[in-house]
């Protein structure tokens, strides 16, 4: 893994992360605090418009925060976004792959953009294809893939450079049970290898199986944070994460 200096196992640290979009009165993210350690998967749970994607976008240096601090592997991510980018991978909600390139060509290109070359590049691509279960279809154009295969290739593109931190924005949305299972297994293996992850999902069962800690956010604010078991125990009358989620965020529809 590619870490920069000693930071006591803390891979990601954010304090008071705030984002107010131009022309908007209410902040999309309002003072988020979060710490993620090596080998830990932290789930960001929240209804539509809660601020999950904004949080991931800021933490992955795609957006500049209006206020707050971001530290990845001990490096200030707001002041030095270019430096921290080598320390994390991103698996976006969109299938961010070139349709007309094969899976191997996509991974090779993204690997090169991470600065990989030579044997490290070959190994990263080979391992990515294996982890995504796409070795047999490595040379087929991504455009010919099923939704599940594309999701798996999307995951592989984020871990080519073996980052210590991975941001996953609903990585299993719209995939079949088999692909979901393979993705879950792959993420568990990465976690066991020490990779820290920030993970957004709407699937509570998925969160319960995989996630070490949960941060429930709504309207840009963090409502609570802890292990799923601890949170369920803390809020009396909640039988599972679904109950807890609805208790904290309400039952009103969020279509916006």
């Amino acid at each position: 893994m590619n870490n920069e200096g000693d930071h006591n196992g803390t891979v990601l640290e954010v304090h008071g992360l705030t984002k107010v979009y131009p022309g908007s009165a209410a902040p999309a993210l309002d003072g988020l605090d979060l710490t993620v350690h090596r080998g830990e998967i932290v789930g960001l749970l929240g209804p539509n418009g809660a601020g999950k994607t904004t949080a991931i976008s800021i933490m992955s240096t795609l957006l500049r925060p209006t206020a707050g601090r971001l530290s990845i592997c001990g490096v200030d991510g707001v002041a030095h976004p270019e430096r921290v980018r080598r320390h994390f991978g991103v698996v976006p909600q969109e299938l961010a792959l070139f349709d007309r390139l094969s899976a191997a060509e996509n991974l090779t290109y993204f690997g090169r953009m991470y600065g990989l070359r030579g044997a490290a590049l070959k190994e990263g691509v080979r391992e990515g294809l294996r982890l995504a279960g796409l070795t047999e279809r490595a040379d087929a154009p991504v455009g010919s893939f099923s939704g599940g295969m594309k999701r798996r290739a999307n995951l592989a593109a984020g871990i080519l450079h073996r980052p210590p931190l991975l941001f996953l924005d609903e990585p299993t949305v719209g995939v079949d049970a088999q692909s979901r299972h393979l993705i879950m297994e792959s993420l568990a293996r990465l976690r066991d290898a020490g990779v820290a992850m920030v993970y957004t999902t709407h699937y509570m069962e998925e969160a319960r199986r995989l996630i070490s800690r949960v941060a429930i956010i709504d309207r840009g604010k963090r409502l609570d944070c802890g292990s799923p078991a601890a949170l369920i125990a803390k809020h009396a009358g909640c039988a599972d994460l679904d109950d807890l989620f609805l208790r904290l965020t309400g039952k009103q529809l969020r279509d916006g």
Binding site: S57, E82, V90, P92, L95, A96, L97, F110, M113
Partner: peptide, 15 residues
């Protein structure tokens, strides 16, 4: 841009 490739590239260590 629509596929998210631009966003993915912007999170990579490339100018």
């Amino acid at each position: 841009r629509q596929l998210g490739i631009t966003a993915r590239l912007m999170t990579m260590p490339v100018a």
